[in-house]
Amino acid sequence: SADYSSLTVVQLKDLLTKRNLSVGGLKNEWVQRLIKDDEES
């Protein structure tokens, strides 16, 4: 899986927004959300 934890907050928020995922919570929660989205898609 991609190394989301190395991305900036701005990059992570951009990815979350593009995938229609929530940008609520902490940075590590966003990373988990993106990883989960990868596994489900």
Rank of each mutant, 00 (worst) to 15 (best):
S1E: 13
S1F: 13
S1C: 13
S1V: 13
S1T: 14
S1A: 14
S1M: 13
A2G: 11
A2P: 14
A2Y: 14
A2V: 15
A2H: 13
D3E: 09
D3H: 09
D3P: 07
D3Y: 12
D3K: 09
D3A: 06
D3S: 05
Y4K: 03
Y4Q: 02
Y4H: 03
Y4S: 03
Y4F: 03
Y4M: 04
Y4G: 03
S5W: 10
S5N: 14
S5D: 14
S6L: 10
S6G: 12
S6V: 06
S6R: 12
S6I: 08
S6W: 08
S6D: 12
L7H: 05
L7I: 04
L7M: 15
L7Y: 03
L7E: 04
L7D: 04
L7R: 01
T8N: 10
T8R: 01
T8H: 05
T8I: 02
T8K: 00
T8E: 07
T8P: 07
T8D: 12
V9Q: 12
V9E: 15
V9H: 11
V9A: 11
V9F: 03
V9K: 08
V9P: 13
V9W: 04
V9L: 12
V10M: 12
V10L: 12
V10R: 09
V10Y: 02
V10D: 15
V10A: 15
V10K: 12
V10I: 11
Q11V: 08
Q11L: 05
Q11R: 01
Q11F: 02
Q11T: 05
Q11Y: 01
Q11S: 02
Q11C: 05
L12D: 02
L12A: 01
L12Y: 00
L12K: 01
K13M: 14
K13Q: 11
K13N: 07
K13R: 12
D14Y: 03
D14G: 05
D14I: 08
D14A: 09
L15T: 03
L15N: 01
L15A: 06
L15K: 03
L15Y: 04
L15D: 02
L15S: 02
L15R: 01
L16P: 00
L16I: 06
L16A: 02
L16R: 01
L16V: 03
T17I: 15
T17C: 13
T17Y: 06
T17N: 11
T17F: 06
T17H: 12
T17W: 04
T17A: 12
K18S: 12
K18C: 09
K18R: 10
K18F: 04
K18P: 00
K18Y: 03
K18I: 10
R19C: 05
R19Y: 00
R19W: 00
R19L: 06
N20I: 03
N20M: 08
N20S: 09
N20A: 07
N20R: 09
N20P: 01
L21A: 04
L21P: 02
L21M: 06
L21V: 02
L21Q: 01
L21T: 02
L21G: 02
L21I: 06
L21K: 02
S22H: 09
S22E: 10
S22N: 09
S22F: 02
S22G: 11
S22Y: 01
S22M: 06
V23S: 10
V23H: 14
V23C: 10
V23E: 08
V23D: 10
V23F: 08
V23K: 08
G24M: 10
G24V: 14
G24A: 15
G24C: 15
G24P: 04
G25D: 07
G25A: 03
G25L: 00
G25I: 01
G25P: 02
G25N: 03
G25Y: 01
L26I: 10
L26Q: 14
L26K: 13
L26D: 15
L26T: 15
L26F: 12
K27Y: 09
K27P: 15
K27H: 08
K27E: 11
N28K: 07
N28T: 08
N28R: 05
N28P: 14
N28Y: 10
E29V: 00
E29Y: 00
E29G: 03
E29N: 06
E29R: 02
E29D: 15
W30E: 07
W30I: 10
W30C: 07
W30R: 03
V31L: 11
V31T: 02
V31M: 06
V31P: 03
V31H: 03
Q32N: 11
Q32W: 01
Q32A: 14
Q32Y: 00
Q32P: 06
Q32E: 14
Q32G: 09
Q32H: 06
Q32D: 13
R33V: 07
R33G: 05
R33A: 10
R33Q: 07
R33E: 06
R33I: 07
R33S: 06
R33P: 04
R33D: 05
L34T: 02
L34P: 01
I35T: 08
I35C: 08
I35Y: 07
I35P: 01
I35L: 12
I35R: 08
I35F: 06
K36N: 11
K36A: 13
K36I: 09
D37K: 06
D37E: 05
D37Y: 15
D37G: 06
D37P: 01
D37S: 12
D37R: 04
D37V: 03
D37T: 04
D38W: 06
D38R: 02
D38N: 03
D38Y: 05
E39L: 13
E39N: 10
E39I: 14
E39S: 09
E39W: 12
E39D: 09
E39Q: 12
E39M: 13
E39A: 11
E39G: 08
E40K: 14
E40A: 13
E40C: 11
E40I: 12
E40T: 12
E40G: 09
E40H: 10
E40V: 11
E40M: 13
S41T: 11
S41V: 11
S41F: 11
S41R: 15
